[in-house]
């Protein structure tokens, strides 16, 4: 089980949190101008990084606040916890983070580029874009 340092509540068990998938995904500035390809990229395509990955977490049974986390998807080591609305911190050996502006958790305005560039940030599209991590099952 991951031990996650919530920025507001301190270290808590993973079971208190809800996973929100890739961080820094901007809601398109002009969705109606997107091609089908670009819309598909926004809706369905997310980075699936092997290594350092910037992702969103919600402390659902604690402060109920979203925050971002940098975590290694192979070792599961948590490398950084940082607020929504701030750029991704550098992680050694990884590509530098997008410098895109990021909106705060409560902010519904979008600041990303018009293209479905996945390097911006927004939470306004949470309900559409955050692919709720599938409650999968082998069958």
């Amino acid at each position: 089980m991951l031990l996650i340092s919530c920025p507001n509540c301190g270290s808590r068990d993973e079971t208190e949190f809800h996973y929100g998938g890739q961080a820094h995904v901007a809601y398109p500035e002009n969705p109606h101008e997107l091609t089908d390809r670009e819309w598909a990229e926004f809706l369905f395509y997310r980075d699936n990084t092997k290594g350092s990955f910037a992702e969103r977490w919600l402390h659902s049974t604690g402060c109920r606040q979203w925050f971002n986390m940098l975590r290694d998807t192979v070792t599961y080591d948590i490398q950084a916890v940082y607020p929504m609305g701030t750029p991704r911190p550098d992680a050694a050996g990884q590509r530098t983070a997008d410098t895109g502006t990021a909106s705060t958790a409560a902010d519904s305005t979008t600041t990303g580029s018009a293209a479905p560039d996945i390097s911006g940030t927004s939470t306004s599209a949470t309900s559409i874009s955050s692919t709720p991590a599938p409650e999968g099952a082998t069958k």
């Binding site: 991951l2 809800h18 996973y19 998938g21 699936n48 990084t49 092997k50 990955f53 992702e55 975590r71 998807t73 192979v74 070792t75 599961y76 991590a133 599938p134 409650e135 999968g136 099952a137 082998t138």
Partner: peptide
């Protein structure tokens, strides 16, 4: 078996 772990992982 049951569900996947919620987070992305290659571990």
């Amino acid at each position: 078996g049951a569900g996947v772990d919620s987070y992305n992982g290659y571990g």
